[in-house]
Design a protein around this nucleic acid. Sequence first.
DNA 1: GCCAACGTTGGC
DNA 2: GCCAACGTTGGC
Length: 130
Amino acid sequence: MSYWLFKSEPNVFSIDDLMHAKQQTSCWDGVRNYQVRNMLRDQIKKGDLAFFYHSSCSPPGIVGVMRIVKDGYLEPQQSTWYSVDVQFVQKFPRLLSLDEIKKHITLKKMLVARKGNRFSITPVTQEEWG
DNA sequence: GCCAACGTTGGC
DNA sequence: GCCAACGTTGGC
């Protein structure tokens, strides 16, 4: 069982969208980055937990937690790009901002580097925040 | 296989 | 809207 962080722009897909989705579940698709694709295909497994991160908004930060409910599978009509299914677990009472993450002694190393689109990292010890 | 140009992401 | 970072593309 692993932990991840999934980024999304809230005006495209937010934690509220997930919370109000049917069964509180949605597919996480649209990833067009090979490294992330490989994670979706090979490493991210049913039962794993992920932070939901809102990007390109003010303020950016972690807004909640979701669970992977379906292993990586090819997107319909695709031969390259994978998606997983995710289910809402909780929304934090308040957002944990990027600013706070950078200041936090344990969390600061996980996000500081910028990466592409919906990037995912493995934070195991970080789960005390969940 | 190198590397410069280009495109995209995402914080500010 | 700007711009730095970084992934991808494509010419050689």
